[in-house]
Design a binder for these strands. Sequence first.
RNA 1: GGGCGGAUAGCUCAGUUGGAAGAGCGCUGCCCUUACAAGGCAGAGGUCACAGGUUCAAUCCCUGUUCCGCCUACCA
Length: 996
Amino acid sequence: MPRFPRRALARAFTRLTFFRCFFRVFRSFSRPRAMVLLQDVFDDLLVGDCITHASEGHKQRLMSFSVRSRHVKMPTARWDLNSMAPLQLEKAYDPKAVETRWSREWLARGYFHASPEQPGQPYCIVIPPPNVTGSLHVGHALNHSLQDILIRWRRMQGRNTLWLPGTDHAGIATQNVVEKQLMVEGLSRESLGRERFVERVWQWKATSGNTIVNQQKQLGESCDWDRLRFTMDEGLSKAVLEVFVRLYEDGLIYRGERLINWCPRCLTALSDIEVEHEDVKGKLYHIRYPLADDPNSSLIVATTRPETMLGDTAVAVHPDDPRYRHLIGKKVRLPLTTREIPIVGDSILVDLEFGTGAVKITPAHDFNDYEAGERHKLPRLAVLDHIALLDAAGMQRAAVESSVIEMLRGLPVSKARPKVETLLREQGVLEKTEDHKMAVGKCYRCKTVVEPYLSPQWFVDIKPLAEPAIKAVEDGRIRIIPEGWVNNYLGWMRDIKDWCISRQIWWGHQIPAWYCLICNSRQIITTDGRTTILQNAIPIVSKSAPTRCPVCHSQELIRDPDVLDTWFSSALWPFSTLGWPEQTQELKTYYPTSVLVTGLDILFFWVARMIMMGLKFMGDVPFKDVYIHALVRDAEGQKMSKSKGNVIDPLHVMDQFGTDALRFTLASMASPGRDIKLAEERIEGYRNFANKIWNAARFALMYLDGPRTALPPMQRTFPDRWILSRLAHTIRAVTVELESYRFDRAATVLYQFIWHEYCDWYLELIKPVLQTPEHPDGAITRHTLVETLETTMRLMHPFMPFITEEIWQTIPHQGDSIVVQKYPASDEGWSAPDAEQHFALLEQTVGLVRTGRALLNYPPGQQIPFHVGHDAPNRQNQLHELQRHLAHLSRGTADVSPPRDWPTARLLRLVTEGLSVGIIVAEDVDLKKAIDRLAKQLTETDKELHRISGKLKNAEFVSKAPPDVIVEHQERVQTLSRDRALLANSEQQLRAMLAT
RNA sequence: GGGCGGAUAGCUCAGUUGGAAGAGCGCUGCCCUUACAAGGCAGAGGUCACAGGUUCAAUCCCUGUUCCGCCUACCA
């Protein structure tokens, strides 16, 4: 390409771009500033091609500007025409600066600090404590946003509000994290020793523990941070001791050897609900057990875990099974061992229909077998050790053949199973294998396969605690919202099993039990450095360490090494955080708390246990409402997980779109009983909403100069009366929805009001008044503008705290901060049904004119003359009253007159529900669109007429339907028929025009 | 195996004491309109999963079916 044309082209393009750019900037600046810039610009242009002054980056920006500004979303920037660099954003809301400033300011002013002395009915929420070393994920963001909405709302309503924050110590999870760190350093918790290890965890807590708290503050959470609690704080630990000792003294805590869920990686017991079940493909092995007294006969058992057969201590058949009934009491020879085991009859364990009808019993490795073993007084032989490896000593005790022991010792289950399969096949006792679907339990923390493991543990006898907790929900002292979960809760509670509360880890509340080494010499065994305290050891349970044994007075005591399940301390959260066991003022004021907001996943882990403990130790429910919200999933409905890489980081989102946008998104999607599929586009949409609010406020500020006069609503202008009426309606709706925890509906109502009533219509309606200096209605309108905007900001504040504070501060207001203002209450004096009726007509008319304008391809800016008229005389009068607004909003000149008086030539008539609009058709207009539209409406009208008149012709309908429904149908037929006639007429005229 | 929930516009979801189907996003057309292009205006788009039943009338109530989630459970 020759050199010259290329440069000339570039120059021309640059100038074009430049002027566009300039035009925008000019508009956004004040006049004097713009004039200076104007001068600079022309200077630049005179000197030469402006692009020669720009860097490469600026050039690109300039080039893209002209293209993108039309089609592509981009931030609206102000441009400094001297440097060609973008200036600060101002036309658009910039959340970052605002959020940082206000979250700091609110804390500094102590607005969130609660005190029992404060007036007002108490309203208290305790936060579900997140893991102290964790970080904020989007589930927290949802959970906390909803709580903050409730708290800010109630605070503004004048309640004595306490939102109590805190974290829990997350025993297993936190210990795992620190152990991993140690591993990197080549250390282990054993090499460090208990004391130094625990110290290490505290250090880790000190460095990482503030992360989540700071993130919460960033979300704008209005917690009373002065009352931040941690489950291992001194006070809370005291509560744990108190509860443990009292439950023990009441006989509700016991120690015993049971089969428990054991994580062979975490090396600790887990409670039933800490085990996640997962379906896996497995095999069902059919194994032949020969009868001891008749080796030619045999019994075939089916199992999914053949390696555990080494620990079998019986075979069960159904006592009613004719196939095997006669064998009960006889013995079988257990393959691969030298043992013989009995055949027992058990109707609970055995299902006649399943497998072979004969079941092997391995009491040390299966929960059902354990119970069957109890029933038949069978020995328990464990063949797996604590890390789930085949245990040589155990196998010896189980009389496994020594060659087999040698082959299997020290192998994990996964490797031992095929070996056992081979051995059984070699011996000819493996009858067959078949594919089988089964569920395996996995550790909820590390996903390792959990083994049923026989060991001495501490348990809570849960039934006596569960009963009152069931009753509290049944009789409504606790409401669960949505109600659908009530049955879930009750079902689980009625079938609850004793709670294993001991964990074989070091991080947590160590169990306050000691053992006398003298009295328990036979019960305390140390092998390979592992001390085992057998189930018959007698504990001394005490809040403080005993100095000597109360029986033998020995001073040789050791403390139980186990710690308590983290949920044991979390269960006390609603009262331990308020000072219990001390009878503090806080406890008296704020207990029971008002509501607990949580996800379904911890209904049993936590909520149920809080209810039980609250009732037991406080004699009252811990909260009146339990609001259960949805789980947050990704846009495809997948559960978010780090491994899938589909995690939405709330902090990233907040950074990108603003905290208010995220909060509003989550609130608007919190529909009951449905999971939230979160997509970034939604958040972006609400970012736009925030910007809309911002600009509405900018608009108001532009026109607030001048006097403002307060008048009673009745004496204000039509737009004012209408918006006040709508605002009153919105206030009522938001309040009602919040009272029933319908955050989604409250959010929708607010969105609808602010965008589609306040911005789309009200601000447009009052523009002529505001933009006319010395307008007679100016002072009243300005007053209403401020009044409604200020009220709306308060109404909105719990949902979008930052932007509402920022705006509220800039508009006329009274008070220091919106945080502590009164929440709007619905004012009946604001309701104006007549104004709303007028508005409906206005909206319908303007809509019709705009449709006509679009049909005739008149550009939005072009002023057009049009006629409006209505069948009903009172409506016709209303149109007269609205004439000014009609003209303004339709951008034209409005002639209000009966349609029969309108010109018949060159007029597009649109009709709906008795309302007619006529628009002058210019000479060169393409009428096709308009005709199509009329034809379509005619078809639809005919269809509807046919349908309704059909109903009216139906004798049964007329005789049985309520009279008002019939009248309504008749009226509709009349209106539609009239519309139809006018439409047909209009279409004809247009077609005639087309023909000429 | 048991229980619960869901199926409504291209997508995400509201809604209905049973009596003319709604929003947001996306899409199409016009428009840089003195708050906002992160915008305005106007549109297109739905057999309310399927099959029966109750009713003058069903997207809504009842029954069954299919599909999808979740919870729960010891079928070895």
